[in-house]
Simulated scan of single mutants.
Amino acid sequence: MRVVYHALASASKQVRPPPATSSHIRSFHASSAMLARRTKMEEKITASDALELLDDEFDDDDTASSGHVMLRQHRQILHYLRLIEHEMPKLVAFRKPFVPPDSSTPLIVRSLDYAGEEHPATLKRVLVVAVDDLPLAGQHAVHKLKLLAGPRWTPNPPTDAGVSRDKEWGNGYVKISCEDFPKPAMNLKWASDALDRLVAAANDASDTFSKLPLDLRHVYAKARKAKKGEHLRGRVFHRPTIRDFPAEWLPSGRAVASSGPPTSIA
């Protein structure tokens, strides 16, 4: 250890800094402005100085915080008014006539949007289709599809499907949703593929499941939970509507015309 120490000490004594030459010396006038600038000590504000600032009189040269909030709201309103005035007329170029869907496009796709804000529900896609609009082979395929769909099949259209309440129910509706994938298109593709597999399995004539009854427990459970009396006396499939009103009870055209306006009773 002593030998190593003496060797290091002798080596350190032999190392000498290079002599100061003209290339290593920088004149003051050749220094940068940042090096030549004098640094000032930051002035610290004490508690007494802060209290003195609060005691200063208001010169009526600014508004209060609520006034700034009001001005910001007015600026936002003016911004959107300018957009309506100058940008909205440009949307006429993208106008398209409304074409009602026909039998070639029976699928109804529902999505959610929060005006551009990120939300987990925006990835979800819901697919609704009427059983009568599907390419099924026959009544055996319709019955098999209802069995395979399980609780995804309902005799009435879902309330959030966008289907009119006055439309005939027919053989019911199938609803398939997906929100497991990170992209909305992927969720819609999975739901569409699931519907294709369901139709292909229903058209398979190897086993029609004709002896199995239709399970309606999910339908009655939903009606019982709604507490509207639809689960009583078979109203799930036979809910009375205006179409059930007897036509012979309606007054004839002559009777209505001859009756005239109602007279007031004095």
Rank of each mutant, 00 (worst) to 15 (best):
V126P: 04
V142I: 15
V109H: 10
A149E: 02
K183A: 12
S27G: 15
K225M: 02
S27M: 11
H238E: 14
M1R: 11
L214E: 10
S192T: 13
V92W: 05
H29S: 13
K146M: 12
H143N: 10
K44T: 08
F98I: 15
R235P: 02
D113P: 01
H119V: 00
V99P: 01
I45K: 06
S206E: 10
G172C: 01
H231N: 06
P19Y: 05
N203W: 01
L8R: 13
S23E: 06
L195S: 06
A205S: 11
L136I: 03
S12T: 10
V131T: 09
L51E: 07
I265C: 05
I242M: 12
H143L: 14
A247H: 08
H86Q: 11
I265E: 13
L81V: 07
P251H: 01
A161E: 02
K90D: 12
P101A: 10
P120W: 00
N156V: 11
P18T: 10
A7G: 02
D61G: 15
L8V: 09
R26F: 11
A64P: 03
N171V: 01
P120S: 00
E230L: 15
L212I: 15
K90G: 14
K222A: 15
P106N: 00
L81G: 07
F98W: 15
M186L: 12
V219S: 08
R75M: 13
S177P: 02
